[in-house]
Design a protein around this nucleic acid. Structure first.
Length: 568
DNA sequence: AAACGGGAGT
């Protein structure tokens, strides 16, 4: 826990911020066409006599860091220091930021020592930058610890620091928006008031997590405080509602239909936004259009497309991609292709994502030849296909019976490496073998890949093989695979368990299925889903145990499996 | 002078 030394190091300097020793301001501004230009100017400056002021060097370092050439910035700094240029706090802040983005928190924190050694004083930005470094490197626990320490010492923070922490909390895998809301509550005793940016960050985080109702509650709280939603707030909520609507579930327990009516709510909100004179932009349209597309309502998406043009909003490449995707989802690939050409006629240049959507669309309707043509087209246009492009094609080839061709392509990827195959690529191959009931081949391939190509199977890989075994009534082998994956520290997911439960039910081993649910699934805190439910209830009914089925239904209901909770 | 906080798609 080397980071925890920080507060003691920083605190004496946080109370007052010194300006007296700062270099004089300068009016020079720089503009570079490329990183090479920036480096060239920097090199020239280092050779000048007398040396330019540190401010000039710092400006260029800052720009290089903005261009994300972190290692370059650090390298140039070292050269500069060797030439005898004396750095100041801003220079160090830039270095800290660079190290943080490179994932080198240790070096970032070591700059603190350097700052003191040079007789400089860390300022609020130094501290915020380090906090951000902890956040983006998923060290939220350390960040919060330092925050608490400093609050306890009576040090005040500005709104940017709170914004940084809240953003970090929302994005972290472990803490999530809940922690951000708690931080918001902690702010109540402080001088800094929550502002629109902080609320928007949390609202967005909640919406992304599918917690649309909590997002709405937070919005009302914010309005009560006199902070009113803006275009960011609306777009997050619209996005959240569209996502919430994606889940269509029917439960056999209560026969409740959770129809996806949330897109309509998203539309209502969208209309409110427009009618209230709030500004709107392409992104808002894109989000709502995507919502319609994912709900198989590409027609309504198209209507919006026309509406946005009528209202003077220029569709961008993402608008077209979303619409094309919508058409592909309902197998209208030709329509998507037509749109593709319209887009090009209107002067937009298709990117890799655009091609990926079309390629995947053609593969899905078994027109792999068209997909291959598009792949050729990409090369002609100097677009570099990515792993998603290749995986779509590999999948398409497998599904249209060209497993040998798929293999050839994967080998090319493996030996030429641009990009090399990933887990998904191999999973596609394994799945295609299982689909045509060649489970033995699949398992042999699986072993060979691990041995020869250092293939690191994931949960999905095992699920594919387990599914293959189960379909062929090879329950023992499925169980072996299950044990193997546990042995390799892979955590089986609900899909794995559903496969096993289904196999157990089909093999008349109902008691084992119930034991699996009781002692493994629930015990490990894995939430059963819709399918788990159907498998067990149907299995018990078929096995002539309606009473147990009834009890099971109640049990799962009590365990929190019911439509409302499930849809959260 | 300069470093730190918020939105979309395979």
């Amino acid at each position: 826990m080397q980071f925890l030394k920080l507060p003691r190091l920083l605190m004496p300097h946080m109370r007052r911020i010194h300006h007296s020793l700062q270099p004089m301001p300068s009016q020079t501004t720089y503009k570079f066409d490329s990183i090479d230009d920036a480096v060239a100017i920097f090199h020239r400056m280092v050779e000048m006599h007398p040396l330019p002021s540190i401010v000039e060097f710092t400006k260029i370092l800052g720009m290089i860091a903005k261009m994300r050439y972190y290692a370059t910035a650090i390298n140039l700094y070292t050269q500069m220091e060797c030439k005898g240029v004396v750095p100041f706090t801003v220079t160090f802040n830039i270095l800290i930021n660079c190290f943080c983005h490179m994932g080198r928190l240790d070096l970032a924190f070591s700059i603190m020592g350097k700052i003191l050694k040079w007789g400089c004083r860390p300022n609020v930005v130094t501290f915020t930058t380090l906090m951000k470094g902890l956040c983006v490197n998923d060290k939220m626990v350390d960040a919060l610890y330092i925050y608490d320490e400093m609050v306890a010492k009576g040090i005040r923070f500005d709104d940017v620091l709170y914004g940084t922490l809240i953003n970090g909390l929302c994005k972290s895998k472990t803490v999530k928006p809940r922690g951000a809301i708690q931080l918001l509550q902690k702010m109540e005793g402080q001088l800094v008031r929550p502002n629109l940016v902080m609320y928007n960050t949390i609202v967005h985080g909640l919406c992304k997590d599918g917690r649309i109702n909590e997002a709405r509650v937070l919005c009302s709280k914010m309005i009560v405080q006199g902070i009113f939603p803006d275009i960011f707030t609306y777009s997050s909520l619209i996005y959240g509602l569209c996502r919430a609507g994606q889940r269509k579930e029917v439960t056999s327990l209560l026969n409740v239909y959770c129809v996806n009516n949330k897109v309509d709510e998203a539309r209502e909100l969208f209309n409110v936004m427009i009618e209230s004179g709030e500004q709107h932009d392409v992104i808002n349209y894109n989000i709502l259009m995507n919502g319609y597309c994912l709900n198989n309502d590409v027609d309504e998406a198209k209507n919006l497309f026309h509406m946005m043009i009528k209202r003077g909003e220029q569709p961008d490449i993402i608008t077209y991609t979303i619409l094309m995707h919508g058409y592909c989802l309902s197998d209208k690939v030709d329509e998507a292709r037509r749109l593709f050409h319209v887009m090009i006629e209107r002067g937009l240049v298709p990117d890799v994502w655009c091609y990926n959507v079309l390629i995947k669309g053609y593969c899905k309707i078994n027109r792999v030849d068209e997909a291959m043509n598009l792949l050729e087209d990409m090369f002609l246009k100097n677009l570099v296909p990515n792993i998603i492009t290749y995986n779509s094609v590999v999948d398409g080839l497998c599904k249209s019976g060209g497993i040998m061709d798929a293999w050839k392509l994967v080998d090319e990827m493996y030996y030429c490496g641009q990009p090399p195959p990933d887990v998904t690529t191999y999973n596609i191959l394994l799945e295609s073998l299982c689909r045509i009931e060649h489970v033995d081949e699949a398992i042999a391939l699986f072993k060979r890949l691990i041995f020869e190509r250092s293939f690191a199977p994931n949960v999905w890989s095992y699920n594919i093989l387990i599914s293959g075994c189960c379909k062929n009534r090879r329950l023992d082998e499925a169980m072996n695979l299950f044990n193997l994956m546990c042995f390799k520290n892979l955590v089986p997911d609900i899909v794995t368990y559903n496969l096993l439960l289904d196999a157990l039910c089909n093999g008349q081993q109902l008691d084992k299925a119930i034991a699996l649910l009781k002692y493994q699934i629930l015990e490990q805190g894995i939430s059963p889903n819709m399918q788990t439910y159907n498998i067990l209830i149907n299995g018990l009914h078929k096995g002539g145990r309606p009473k147990t089925a009834q009890k099971m239904a109640q049990h799962l209901f009590i365990r929190g499996y019911h439509p409302d909770v499930y849809n959260q």
